[in-house]
Simulated assay, not measured.
Amino acid sequence: MTDYATNADKKKILIAGLDNAGKTSIIDLVQNKMVDTLSKNPTKGVSRREAEILGQSFVLHDLGGQEQYRTIYLAQAAKYFGETGACVFVVDLQDKERYAVALGYFESIIKLFKGLKITPRIYVFFHKFDHAYMTSYNDPTKPERERYNQLRDQFTSTARLNGFSVYDFFKTSIFDEWSCYAAFFDIWSSFITRLDSIQSYLQRITEAVPGVLLSVLLDDKGNLLGKHFAKDMQVAIDKVIELATASIKALVEFRGTKMGAVLGETNMVSVKVGNNVVLLRGFEAGGKGYYLAIARDQPDDKESKSALDHIAYSMSIFIAAKE
């Protein structure tokens, strides 16, 4: 029999939801693995993944959502739900016929947490918020927005009636990779206080450099550690998503190259994204590797390189001091 207990030094993140909700694809995406939406097979039982971010270890328990497995989980609460630090419940927004089933499963899990006398943070991912769904959601003549709000209210009240609260809701889609990265960044931040300070410092140092539209910081495993968008980009959400997603993809690819393996200011590359330039480089701090991307509305010139080097150097000093 498999032991699903988690070492006390590791935080257990439970990923639950009905079958075909997209749980495994989200984890694959966040862990920088290729997502094949056509051939993804249902998870059988429990799949465990490990992650380490800034020295904090996590174990992600991906619970297969088929009914036969859900029955087993609920019958053996301590084995499958014990020691949970955070629970991510994934709902397939496009599976309207099973909203009630998903809500019922969510309530069963909440009641098990209550019975086990544990209080993990609860997150709900309203998944498959894809382009077609988003178009209907933004169309006032369509019922999607009202239906979404009703569903969100039902999850909120279900948790509240059982003495819990939903810590946050996220609209996610594997076709909008940034939505998944940003959601998990918030989850990691709830366990790692250093992430807040890194995020704040990245924001401060980026704002001090003229012409930088956004900055993205990854660790050497491709985990998102910090992000900042210029104030005038907050209204241009499509542009933010395009640049941020392109930056993540480029950084993940860059760190796997020979150039990316050598950390230093001489190893800088640039990627054209629309009318903007994304510049990438690695740097070392406290004996570990990190990767930085910035996007500018200027050509790839000496000023852009200087901006990248300045932010990378400042972040390396700050991170090393926090080790």
Results as ranks from 00 to 15, higher is better:
190 S>P: 07
230 A>E: 02
135 T>F: 05
217 L>I: 08
229 F>P: 03
245 T>M: 07
72 I>Y: 01
111 K>A: 09
130 D>A: 06
167 Y>Q: 15
224 L>T: 14
235 V>M: 12
236 A>Y: 08
38 L>D: 10
3 D>S: 15
177 E>Y: 05
37 T>V: 12
140 P>S: 08
58 F>V: 04
183 A>W: 04
84 T>E: 03
32 N>G: 11
247 S>K: 05
94 Q>L: 13
88 V>D: 03
115 G>S: 09
125 F>K: 05
164 F>Y: 15
221 K>A: 13
236 A>M: 10
51 A>C: 15
101 V>M: 06
177 E>W: 00
210 P>C: 02
81 F>H: 03
78 A>M: 08
174 I>L: 12
208 A>R: 01
226 G>H: 04
192 I>N: 15
240 V>T: 15
65 G>D: 01
250 A>C: 10
248 I>R: 11
43 T>M: 07
163 G>P: 11
100 A>Q: 14
271 V>M: 09
318 F>R: 08
234 Q>E: 14
196 D>H: 13
120 P>D: 06
219 D>I: 07
166 V>N: 10
178 W>N: 07
319 I>N: 02
107 E>C: 08
109 I>D: 04
270 S>R: 01
146 E>K: 13
238 D>H: 15
78 A>K: 13
87 C>N: 14
264 G>P: 01
125 F>W: 00
122 I>P: 06
9 D>K: 14
242 E>V: 12
304 S>F: 03
16 A>T: 11
226 G>E: 03
247 S>L: 06
312 A>L: 04
55 G>Y: 01
166 V>W: 08
302 K>M: 02
283 F>C: 06
152 R>E: 15
260 G>H: 10
38 L>H: 09
188 W>E: 03
146 E>D: 14
262 V>F: 12
52 E>Q: 11
19 D>Q: 13
172 T>R: 13
173 S>A: 13
300 D>P: 01
234 Q>K: 13
21 A>L: 10
299 P>F: 02
259 M>G: 11
166 V>Y: 08
217 L>D: 06
132 A>K: 14
284 E>Y: 02
305 K>G: 09
19 D>N: 13
117 K>M: 10
260 G>I: 12
251 L>H: 00
67 E>G: 03
11 K>D: 05
66 Q>N: 10
42 P>F: 08
229 F>E: 03
132 A>C: 09
121 R>G: 12
313 Y>C: 06
232 D>Y: 11
169 F>I: 14
102 A>H: 06
230 A>C: 07
92 D>A: 13
92 D>Y: 04
52 E>R: 10
108 S>I: 01
218 L>S: 09
251 L>Q: 10
40 K>F: 02
42 P>N: 09
132 A>S: 14
